[in-house]
Design a binder for these strands. Structure first.
Lengths: 204, 204
DNA sequence: TGTCTTTTATACCGACTCGCATATATTTCT
DNA sequence: AGAAATATATGCGAGTCGGTATAAAAGACA
């Protein structure tokens, strides 16, 4: 059915275009990125952007949604690799790190945590998107801690939801710290030592 | 010497003007806030703003610097109140909470962590300001954990710097989560349970 | 070939941006 | 009172903003 549509064929691929748009937003955030920059990054003219995705906010939300889907799936896979709670947890953060440091320039942290947060104060839709993404992180981590407890790696008294939110906090902080280029920060060491701190009192 | 300067006296107070400017930036960030909004918030005209503080970025940086000075001093006082590590740590976060929830509308989190982070990727000066603020938080918490260890509240094996960075992460996350208005978030409970998780394995 | 459909490209709109030049007002010092 | 100093107020200018109307181009069908 979707074999070949009539009319002039499009010269862009929606997914890669959204990826390029996200890359542009990643640097300067939603308000700081102009449609001209998005147009240049995607190779699409503004009218084409409008026809394909809608206005600026719609482009942003769709780009973020696509990123979230891919990124969280990768983190989830690392978290449930089955190498034990400590290693899985560390590889969860380590899976995020290359993305946070990507961009071929100064590190930009997380495109969601570091850009959607601004708009969340004044835009209810972006706020809801962001809250949903944060929930998603908490839930994945909570499920992993529950699994570890059920498998006997953690004390029975350990509370997965609390550990999950604490572990989620670590990801938020990593996103911010990497983008801030804190000179004292050694990301891998920060991850390793923080995982150890979280697990310290809860091992079976 | 500074008794009475010649010329027409200014009708604004620089500190309160910077406070009002910060309040404007707090909502929409640096790029999303226009000089007209700052002018309206401060009651100063653009030329007066220029003469007093410099261009838009200088206004932003001075407003953030003033906030940081006051805010971090308050947090520091709460952290070293001397009620024991668990209570002091909790009151450290609880001291930040009213500020994060202030503004007479939807919660806006931290004006530094939630707005400077965006610009940090493309502006080296704001990046350095932000990194310095994050360091300042880490150092205060590290010093507090060191004190707790020396006072015998924590094991001798506890490593203050690692605990300090973990505790700093919690503040970063609180700033983001409050601004995201995560529906599931109960800030006070989040603080209390996270402090407990951090301290769990390190008490003497 | 000619018609239809879809995408791309050009050009433009009104509104807003930052920054400043200029003019006016208010105070102190001489 | 007059000069000097400092502040506020008005408004402009060059450029950018997000968004769109219109026309050209490219392929699918008949």
């Amino acid at each position: 059915m979707n074999a070949r549509r009539r009319g002039r064929p499009r010269t862009y691929d929606p997914e890669t275009a959204l990826g390029a748009a996200l890359d542009a937003f990643w640097w300067r955030g939603f308000a700081g990125t102009s449609l001209d920059e998005i147009s240049a990054a995607t190779g699409m003219n503004r009218p084409s952007l409008y026809a394909a995705f809608g206005d600026k906010k719609a482009i942003y939300r769709k780009a973020v949604e696509q990123f979230n889907r891919d990124f969280l799936a990768r983190l989830h896979a690392a978290l449930f690799a089955g190498a034990g709670i400590e290693k899985d947890l560390a590889s969860f953060y380590l899976a995020a790190l290359p993305t946070y440091q990507s961009g071929g320039g100064p590190a930009r942290g997380c495109p969601v945590i570091c850009t959607a947060t601004i708009e969340a104060a004044v835009d209810n839709e972006i706020q809801a998107d962001l809250a949903g993404a944060l929930d998603c992180i908490d839930e994945a981590l909570t499920a992993r801690f529950a699994l570890a407890r059920d498998q006997g790696e953690l004390k029975n008294a350990a509370e997965p939801a609390k550990l999950g939110r604490m572990a989620g906090a670590l990801l938020h902080s990593l996103a911010v710290r990497v983008r801030a280029r804190q000179p004292s920060l050694k990301p891998e060491a920060f991850i390793e030592e923080s995982v150890a701190v979280i697990l310290a009192g809860h091992r079976a």
